[in-house]
Amino acid sequence: MDELSDAAGVPMSAITNAPQSGTAERAERLARAWRLWITAGPGLFWIVLFLVLPSMILLAIGFFSIGNYGNPHLPLTLTPIREVAGYSILGWSPANITTILRSLLQAVSAAGLTILLAYPVVFFIIAQPPALRPLLLLFVILPSWTNQVVRTYAWMELLGPGSALSHLAQTLGLLPPHLGLMPGLLAMQIGLTYNYLPYMVVPLYAAAEKLDWSLVEAGRDLYASGARLFWSAVFPQTLPGLLSGIILVAIPAFGDYVVPTLLGGGKSMMIGALIAAQFLQTPNWPYGAALTIFMLIFTCAGLLVFRVMSKRLGSSEGSML
C-alpha cells in the first residue's frame, strides 16, 4: 500500500502522454461505495429511521401549537419555547429555569464526587501487580451491569425513613423524626454518584495505565512535596481520561429519569422527570419537546466543550471510527 502513497511524490513532469483521469480508480471507488452500502447501509438506515428521524420529529414538535389532547397542532409557534423559558399567560415564572439549573448542578456535582472517589481507586489499582488489575477493575464495573432500577432501588432501602442511616441522622438532629434521607436532593445526589461512578473510573484508569512514569521520576527531583508532584507530573497526564469521564457522567446524569423519580420525590423536580411527565401524565407534547430541545442544547454544548478541550490536549479520544 505504501506504493500508493509514495506514488504521490511523482512530479507532474513525469506525466506525459498517459490518460488524464483514472477510470479504473473511479470504477474501484464505485465498487467500494456499493459494497459499503450493502454492508453498512442497513445498520445506518436502521439508526436513521428509528432514532435520527424520530429525534427530528420530536424536536420539530417543539414548534407546534398544543391541540385538545396535548397533541401537536398547527400553526407553528414559538409558544412552547417561551413557556420553557418561563413565560406564560400568568407572567414569568422561574420554575423551569430553576429545574434546569438544579439538574445541571446535580450533574456537575455528581461528576465532581465521582472524580473524588475515582482517583484513589484508579491509583490503588495501578499500584497492584498487572495480573491483578483487570480483576480489581472488574469489581468496580460489575455493579453497573445490574439494572439501573435495581441499583437505585438499593438506595431506597438504605436511605428510606426506616433505615439505619436515617435513624442516625434523626438522632444527630440532622433530620426531623419520621422522615427519611429519601426522597430529596441528597438522596438524588448519592444515587447519581453511585450509578455513574464506574463511568468515571474506566476512562481514568485507561489514562492512568498509559502514564509516563519517567516524567514522574523527573519531577521527583524538582518538587519537594508529593502533592506538588501529583499536580505537576501525574494529574496533567490523566486529563484526557478525566475529560471523558466528566462527559460520560455528567451527560447521562443531567437527563437521568430513574434516579429523580425514585429518589428525588415531588419537591425537587429534575428536567428528565419534567420532560417525561409531559408525555406520560399531562400530555403536552409541544411543551415536552421544547424542554427536550433545551436539554439537547446543553448536552451538545457539553460535547462541544469536550471536543475542543480534548483536541487542545492532543488526545485522540473518541476519534476511533
Binding site: A18, S21, G22
Partner: peptide, 14 residues
C-alpha cells in the same frame, strides 16, 4: 499498461 491514482498521479505509465 497505465494506472492513474487520485489527483492525476501516474503510478504506471504505458
Amino acid at each position: 499498461i497505465s494506472r492513474v491514482f487520485g489527483g492525476g498521479v501516474i503510478a504506471v505509465d504505458q
